[in-house]
Structures are given as C-alpha cells and as structure tokens.
Design a protein around this nucleic acid. Structure first.
Length: 879
RNA sequence: GGGAGCAUAGCUCAGUUGGUUUAGAGCAUCUGCCUUACAAGCAGAGGGUCCGCGGUUCGAACCCGUGUGCUCCCA
C-alpha cells in the first residue's frame, strides 16, 4: 500500500470515530469490573466549543481511555447545563430579532420559544466533542432540565426547606427599571460617565451645617445617616450628633466608620441603605432604617414624601433646583464615574432591595470541608486546599433565586396577602395554605407560584449522582455502581460555585463524596496572557484548527503546554509541534513498511551469534528503555501530571525510538533486515502506540492497524504489564549515546563534512564495553573502521570521555591550537568542580553532620573528577 | 479592603522530605547538512546573580523573615 507523504488526519479521524461508535466501545453498563466514572462538567447548552472545553475534555478523555485500557469499566457521562442566564439572554436576543419583546409574552409562551430554541441549537457542543475524539457514553446524555432531573431539583428545594436550610431574606440586587427585572452581575455593563458631584449642606441639630458630596441627590430623601471617618479631625466633635435631611427635615445620626475615605468629597458621606450596595452594608452594621424611596419602574415612591410618581432623573433635576432655592447647594463639580447599565435595555441599573430565597450554608459546609482537608477527596494540585478551606470556613449564605423564567421554577406558592407554602406542586401547596391561612375556601385560582427561577448551580450541584438518577430513583443499580465517581476535571474559577457545592450535596443526599479526585486545569489564555473572550476576539476557532491540524495535534498542542493548575498560554505553534509529531510517527511507519518488503526470514543470525550482534544490543536496549519509560509515564499519570507524561512519551518516541533505535537497527542501503529485528521493531511500535493512545487516539489506532493485521482495536486493548528494566543495559545505551554525540560534536567542530569517512581509534582498558556496539558506532559517526589502541595516535582529533580516549583520523588538516584550547577549557571546568567537592570534604562539620550516603557520593564525585582530570592532562601532554 | 497563589534560560515550565556533578526539558535562537522514513527533517552548539535583601544550616532554587512585581477569588 502506498502511504501519503505526510499524515492526513481528517478522513482517518472521522473513520475511526464512527468505527468506535459502531462497536459500542464507549457505552458502559454495570458489571464485575471496577468502575471508573467521570461526569463531564456540563457545558452551557448554548455553548460552542472553545479552548477551555478543549483542554478540559482532552484531559477527561485521556483519563477515561487510560482507565479503559487498564481493564476498568470506564464510563464518561456527557450532558449539558440549562444555564439560565446565558440561555435566557440568547432567547431574548433571538426574539428581539424577530421583533418580539419578552414582556409581551406570557411565561408559557416564552418557555415554548426557549425549548424550541434549545432543541434546535442546543447541544451543538456535544457534536463538537465527537470531533475531538472524546469517548463519551452518548446513551447517557443528560440535561439539567430533563423531567426527572427537574423533579429532583424541586425535591431538594423542598427537603432543604423542611430541614430549615432554606429561608427568605432581603438582598441588594441590580434592578433594571425598564424591564422591571433583576439582573445578575454579569448582565450589568459599567461605563464611564460624565456626572456632577453635588455638595449639599445638611443642617445640624445643634446649629451650623455639615456638607456631604453626592452624585445622586435624588436619593437624599432616603438618607438614614451621615458617616465620617473616625480619624477625621474635622468631624470628631460631631460623632453621635444629629443632622436634618434637607427639604423633609428628617433627623439622622452622624456615625463614625473606617469605611469613609478622608480625601473624597468633604469626607462626610450620606448613607442611603435602600439605594446603594455599600450603604446597605453600613446600614446592616449600624441597624439603620431602610427607606426605599423608589418604585420598581424608577419613579419615586410614597416613602420619598416628595416627587411621588416622578422619574428618578427628572427628580434629580428638580431636587437640585429646590435645594438651590432653599440654599442647600454649596457647589457643583464635574465628575467622572462608573455607572452600571443594563445589558438588555441599556437602562441605568438601580440597586434595589428585594426578597430572595437563600440557603444557609454553615451546616452543609462542615462535612464538605473536612472531606477535603483530610484528603478523603484529593485536590490536584493540592495548593487549592488552602483556598477551599478559607472559603468554607467563612462561607456566606447562598442566594438561589434568579429573576428569570428559563430554569427550575421556585416551588413556593403565595396567597394574595403574601402567605406562602413550599411544596412539590400546586395541590400540595394549596393543602398547606388552607391550613396556614385557616381558609378552607382557598382554591388553586387564589394562589400563584413564585415567578423566579433557581440559580443554575442549584441544579448542577446534584450532577454527579442525578445523572445516574440517584435521587429520582434512589438506590438504583447504576448509582450504586458508578457513584462515587472517580475524577472531576474542572477549572479553579468554579471551585466555590460548583465543586464545593457538589461536595455538600454529595454528603447531604448520598452520605458519600461525589468524587475521589479533583483535577484543576488552568485557564486558557492567549499568547499575551489575556483571558480568551468574545469581545477581545482572541479565541481561536477550534473546529477550524481541528480541520487544519487534526484533532490529535490539537490535543497534543494543548496538553503539552498545560502544567496542572497553571494557566496555559495558547500558541498555535504548539499545534504545529503536534502536527509535526504526527508526521514523525507517520514517517517511522513508512520506514517500517519499506523494511517489510526486505525481511530476511532465513534467520541467519542464530541466537548464539546474536549475543554479540549489534542488533541484539539495540533491541535489548530499547525493550528496557520502553519498560523504564512506561513505568515513569504510569507514575506521572497516577499523579495527574498529564503534561509531563506526554512530554516523556514524546521524547521516548522521537528521540529514543526514532533518532536512536531506528537508526541503530536500520539496515544498509537496500540491505535486508533480520526477521527478529523487524518483528521486535513492530512490537515496540505497537507498544508505543498503546501508550500514546489516550493522548492521541486517532493516529495511534490508524498506525496500530497499518503495522500488521490486528484482531481487535487499540481503543479497547488492555495495557501490557510493565517489566522491570535492566539498568546495566540502560547504562550501556547511555554511554553509547554519549560517545556518539561527543564524536559527532568533534567532527562538527573540526569541520569534517558529514560525508567524509573517518578512522576511529579507541584507547580504553575495557574494550568489551565497545565491541558489541562497534557497528552502531561506525554507522552513527560515519567511520570507515574502528581500532583499539594502547597509545596516542598522532595527527588525530582527540576526544576524552570519562577515562577513555578517542582518536579521530581524518583527511582534514588539524587545528591543534583549538583542540588544546578546548581541552584546557574542560580542564578548568573539572578543576573548579573538584575544588567545590573538596571544599565540602575538607569541611570537618560537613563530614561530621552529613548523612553517610551524601559523603559517599561526594567521595565518588571526587574520584571521578580526579580520573577525568588525569585523562585530560595526559591528552594535553600528548598533543 | 479581605484572602490565596506565583516569581528559575528569550518564551512556557520541571526541579520529589535541603545534599544526585558550579540547575533540567520543550519551544525559539545560532552553526553545518536537501545523508534513500521524515527540511513539517537530521546532526551539533550557545544561553541562567534560580526576583532583591537579610536569616537558619556543615550545606539553600528549596526552610524563615522582609521588600518589590504579577495573577486570581471574594467584597
């Protein structure tokens, strides 16, 4: 078969993915094997694949494929998150394009559009994951708003409410006065705005005035206090005294608090708890009255006493006029500040107090904290434990209501007077309300359900068990088998939003941790270290990259650059490296296919003669090297050092296999290759593909099948056991490499052309070290012949390696001076090194205190250095 | 404002409880090669005040203190 010049990934990748799917390799059902379970962090149903997903899912796929090849029952569960904020925003935008406003629709109408949208565009990302080669069990695809899942979320709300963990409480939220809805922080856009800073005099109870500065004079009517810095000399005598709110003459206290900055405005701050986030905090601290002077449409309320029903910005103009008339305005300055605007309506966002639903976290957090601290759940890297502890020890209550329609509707029903009941459905609620209101006449028509939805995280915290219906069908076979899951792979930025809460839910509802290990990936940034974002336009088109480089190369590129827990700076050159690696593998395959046509099956090399043959040395060395690295890689993977494991494999394949081993066993031009060498080489290549498969599944499967007729697929092949390597042969290999490199370097430095043949003379006491590798050596340094000598060879290039001397005879004229200079440089290095060793050994305290093996090592260093110095000195004399 | 983390070659990072040669790798750079698998390649090389200062120790990239710079989370 003719193989293409370069590896062409696209057709091969789709071919194998379809094949794996047709063989059902990724679907898992409980059996006798040990399970290995991973639940995908569900991407937003609206999402499209970006670099973060690519990193995250590549890692999960590596873990899952490795587990599968280790003989475990690997189960990777896919799914999506309904993502209330993001999805609702998309649907609203889609409707707007069609000229429909959300406010013109009923809840049911809106949700119909939303579902329609979800069915049409949702879950594209799951298709994209197939392109990446992710071995997900597609039969298990879940969605956080699937009927069973939905019911479980409602059940959890009811349960926590019954247990007293859920309550209603006030909270300052971002209010969009135009849409009459609350906004999440993400939906507020801050813009720099040219404003005015008004200096307003407040009359003091005891006479005189105090001046405050404000950009929002219309909120004066809601003032509850004036605050000054306790260290501010100007106001020390006023602490605890009273002032009057202008125009309405309400009496308010002057309180000292560190919060106020001395050099802003006048150093005196008006406190309006109902209309400013920070003021609200101050109000809580000093138990100030909360006077809400605004209606939900941004007009003034009854509580304002003045301007009732007029718009806030009209009132700003009017109140300034009135204050000026009354002599309260001292001055007006130009001022630039940040003002929040609604992403949806562009209205200025109004901080507003509202009643929200909360989960009290203290009790839930306790088992979740200790599980991580005592390593029942392992964090990788462990440095995130500190962060986790700090957060869990200072945990704040969780506001779970969101003013949205797309999501799980809060299961609380109200009567017109505001009495409410939490229940699983309206009928239950009605029954409860009949009792609490003592009104038996109450009907379903008299009660209404809370309009708000639950925070998305309130559903995704159930993910690890509810994908197995652990709550909707408790104790079922699947959840008992797969739960707790093995590894969660996620970004550190959602350690609190999601990871911590899953742990809490796990202990609360399964009395068991949700996962054993958590692997935190980094954040993918661009070359300049900026976070990837739509607005910067710096997120590459992932599918485009896969088309250009192939999924294997993309997987390689992102993994090679991603140390655990560190951010990764994404650079397309890493993908080039991946593509080049593909080609390297492809070319190695082509070489073997060429050999295949010239295999010498006459078995001319019998086992006896093989003992000294160089081919035997090469295959023996590589077999041991393979085992050595297999063990290293296995350990690295066990420690979740995936990037390092890949680097190690890359080097094993590129350097040890291609650059050294294949060159060592390569037959001469058009010469046959011994069957034994050929078979071994195929076997090694197979083994390398096996080790690399979890990282680069497509090309490894392809090469595996091209190497020879196979009975099964690599995807489900079981790893071969790792034999322990023989260190003697490994060391011989290292010496051989060292000699080859040093001699090539000498050739280079002496400008001997690659094609020029040389004669090599070795002066050594251990010629048996070099005899088995002579022909490799000859090939690798382009020597015509190798001789052993017991004296210096005149007119030759001298290379010292440890205690042995190598003389290169070539036609080229020698540069003795340069050679001498080189030797002197080596000598200085060795002498300095010896001096540093001797400094330690001559130090009595070192000899007295250091561990015996450390001293022993230093003595060995001394002996080695002395031997090398002796060799160099002899050489210098010989020149 | 509160907290966490990071600082090692031009870049991205390793560096195991302090001793494993006066610190390693990949990428980039430089030199020489179109050598019959591979120029998307081969062979070789150069490159570091381990952020500054102080301390502990026989011994510090590693431990402690301090300063500086950067990043993230929460408010």
């Amino acid at each position: 078969m003719e193989l293409s010049k370069n590896y062409l990934p696209t057709p091969i990748e789709s071919k194998w993915y379809e094949h794996w799917i047709s063989k059902n390799y990724f679907s898992s059902t409980p059996d006798d094997r040990e399970p290995y379970t991973v639940v995908i962090p569900p991407p937003n149903v609206t999402g499209v694949l970006h670099m973060g997903h690519c990193l995250n899912n590549t890692i999960q796929d590596i873990l899952i494929r490795r587990a599968r090849m280790q003989g475990k029952n690997a189960c990777w569960v896919p799914g999506t998150d309904h993502a209330s904020i993001a999805t609702e925003a998309k649907v609203v935008a889609m409707l707007r394009e069609r000229g429909i406003t959300k406010s013109s629709l009923s809840r049911e109408e809106f949700l119909n559009y939303a579902w329609e949208w979800k069915e049409k565009y949702g879950g594209i990302i799951l298709q994209q994951l197939r392109k990446m080669g992710c071995s997900l069990d597609w039969d298990r695809t879940s969605f956080t708003m699937d009927p069973d899942y939905y019911a479980s979320v409602i059940q959890v709300f009811n349960d926590l409410y019954k247990k007293g963990h859920i309550y209603r409480g006030k909270r300052m939220i971002n209010w969009d006065v135009r849409a009459k809805t609350a906004l999440s922080d993400e939906e507020v856009i801050y813009k720099e705005v040219q404003s005015k800073l008004y200096y307003v005099n407040y009359e003091l109870e005891e006479g005189g005035t105090i001046t405050i500065a404000t950009v929002r004079p219309e909120t004066i009517l809601g003032d509850a206090a004036i605050c000054v810095n306790p260290n501010d000399e100007r106001y020390k005598q006023l602490h605890g005294k009273f002032a009057y709110v202008p125009l309405i003459k309400r009496k308010i206290k002057i309180i000292p608090d560190e919060y106020v900055t001395l050099d802003f405005g006048t150093g005196a701050l008006k406190v309006t708890p109902a209309h400013d986030m920070n003021d609200y905090q101050l109000g809580q601290k000093y138990q100030l009255e909360i006077i809400d002077t605004m209606n939900d449409d941004g007009t003034m309320s009854e509580a304002a006493q003045l301007y009732i029903g007029e718009d806030r910005f009209e009132v700003r103009k009017k109140i300034v006029e009135d204050l000026t008339k009354a002599g309260h305005i001292q001055k007006i300055e130009e001022y630039t500040n940040q003002v929040g605007f609604s992403e949806r309506t562009d209205a200025v966002v109004e901080p507003r107090l509202s009643l929200q639903w909360w989960v009290s976290m203290k009790d839930l957090a306790t088992p979740a904290l200790s599980a991580v601290m005592n390593d029942d759940i392992h964090f990788h890297p462990a440095k995130f434990k500190n962060l986790y502890r700090h957060w869990m020890e200072n945990i704040k209550d969780w506001c779970i209501s969101r003013q949205l329609w797309w999501g799980h509707r809060i299961p609380a029903w109200y009567t017109t007077d505001g009495t409410f009941a939490v229940a699983n459905n309206a009928e239950e609620a009605l029954a409860a309300l009949k009792i609490s209101t003592k009104n038996n006449q109450l009907s379903l028509a008299d009660i209404y359900q809370d309009d708000d939805c639950l925070d998305t995280w309130f559903s995704s915290w159930l993910w690890p068990f509810e994908v197995f219906k652990g709550l909707s069908n408790p104790g079922n076979k699947e959840v008992s088998y797969y739960y707790p899951t093995n590894t969660l792979v996620t970004a550190p930025e959602i350690i609190f939003f999601w990871v911590a809460r899953m742990i809490m839910a796990g202990y609360e509802y399964k009395q068991e941790k949700p996962f054993k290990d958590v692997y935190f990936t980094g954040i993918v940034r661009d070359k300049q270290g900026r976070k990837m974002s739509k607005s910067l336009g710096n997120s590459p088109d992932l599918l485009g990259l896969i088309d250009v480089y192939g999924a294997d190369a993309v997987r390689f590129g992102i993994m090679i650059a991603s140390p655990a827990g560190n951010d990764i700076l994404f650079d397309e050159s890493a993908l080039e490296q991946g593509r080049n690696f593909n080609n390297k593998l492809w070319n190695a395959l082509k070489l073997l296919k060429m050999w295949e046509t010239r295999v010498n099956t006459s078995n001319a090399i019998g086992d006896n003669t093989l003992e000294v043959s160089t081919e035997l040395f090469a295959i023996n060395w590589f077999e041991n090297r393979l085992n050595q690295v297999a063990k290293e890689v296995d350990e690295l993977l066990t420690q979740f050092k995936l990037s390092e494991a890949l680097k190690t494999l890359y080097s094993l394949i590129w350097d040890d296999f291609c650059s050294w081993y294949l060159e060592w066993v390569k037959p001469g031009f058009e010469q046959p290759i011994e069957a034994k060498v050929y078979d071994k080489t195929i076997q090694y290549f197979e083994r390398l593909m096996e080790m690399l498969h979890p990282f680069m599944p497509f090309i490894t499967e392809e090469i595996y099948h091209l190497l020879k007729e196979q009975s099964g697929d690599l995807c489900v092949k079981q790893f071969q056991p790792i034999a322990s390597p023989d260190h003697t042969i490994l060391q011989s290999g290292e010496i051989l490499k060292q000699v080859i490199t040093a001699l090539r370097d000498a050739r280079n430095k002496n400008q001997i052309k690659p094609k020029d043949l040389i004669q090599l003379h070795i002066q050594t006491l251990n010629s048996e070290t070099y005899q088995p590798i002579e022909s490799i050596l000859k090939k690798q340094i382009n020597a015509e012949a190798i001789f052993y000598t017991n004296h210096a060879i005149s007119n030759s290039i001298l290379v010292n390696i440890e205690k042995d001397k190598f003389y290169i005879e070539a036609e080229r004229q020698l540069d003795t001076a340069a050679m001498k200079a080189g030797l002197l440089k080596d000598l200085t290095y060795e002498q300095n090194f010896l001096a540093s060793v001797m400094k330690k050994l001559n130090n009595e305290k070192f000899v007295a205190n250091a561990k015996p093996e450390v001293i022993e090592l230093e003595r060995k260093k001394q002996a080695d250095a002395e031997a090398r110095i002796k060799t160099i000195e002899e050489s210098l004399n010989e020149i």
